[in-house]
Design a protein around this nucleic acid. Sequence first.
DNA 1: CACCACCCCTGGACGC
DNA 2: TGCGTCCAGGGGTGGT
Length: 296
Amino acid sequence: MPELPEVETVRRTLERAVVGRRVVAVELRRPDVVCDGETMSGAWKGDSVSAVLRHGKQLALVGERGCVACVHLGMSGRLCVYEPPEGETHNAHPPPAPPKGRGVQTFPVHTHVVWRFMDGSALAFTDPRRFGGVWCFTDEAALQEQRWGVLGPDALTITPGRLHAELSKTQRGLKAALLDQHLVAGLGNIYVDELLFATRIAPERCAAAVTREEARRLVGAMRRLLIRAIEAGGSTLRDYVDANGSPGSYALRHKVYGRGGQPCRRCRAVLRSDLIAGRTTVWCGRCQPGAVVTER
DNA sequence: CACCACCCCTGGACGC
DNA sequence: TGCGTCCAGGGGTGGT
């Protein structure tokens, strides 16, 4: 479920927690979730984390020597920081069940990669469903060229002009277009539904028919929505927690996502729910008039 | 190019 | 209580 606000929340938590820490070892517990893992283990040994970047839903740990580990959380991925077992934990919300004993940290099941730091702390990538993964690059340019460069602009920085230009190129429905990371990076099923409700546009509206004015409204609403969600620490439905193990509270503010069949918070009409672009989609037929779809 | 079904995978919800 | 079934979904692929 991590979309842009959840990933940005993890990035901020991680930035405070691991920048400046020196890596002593990288454990690949499930090498198949890591692309070029052996290279990474070697490259990271002895290096310090200098930055934590984000583009869309993806994160990247950057080392002082330049090597990069790009992490995609997928559906159920987590990046959590674990303090040394004997040390005091200053986290208000310690990560889920980190049993402490005999000076050795243990990690949750489905932990696939562990970065161990010189001070005894560790960063663990845990992902039960394994829709996520880690990709390693020798430098930031390679990350951009091979992975982030093929994505659209980040949803927080895309301009109305660019969004309008991208949408005008495709005859697909607007929901499908906004979910496409090659067009704009960072939106997923939750925030697209919320965004379309906020802007009162039907999910099946033809993307190419979106006007400049509507694109401007979409970008404005997108920023407000994402920024508010980041301020709330993201939306936690089931799996998502930040790098300290804290859940987000934005799910409480969802206007349509997960509310199919319930009354619209704006006009009280029953919210519709149907499969659009292969995703469960919830919208208000009265506030977001448009193409008629068969009800489920 | 667009759209679809299908796959990856696990755990939570729900029915019996 | 316990087991089976369905569902969630980001992203990739391969077929229509």
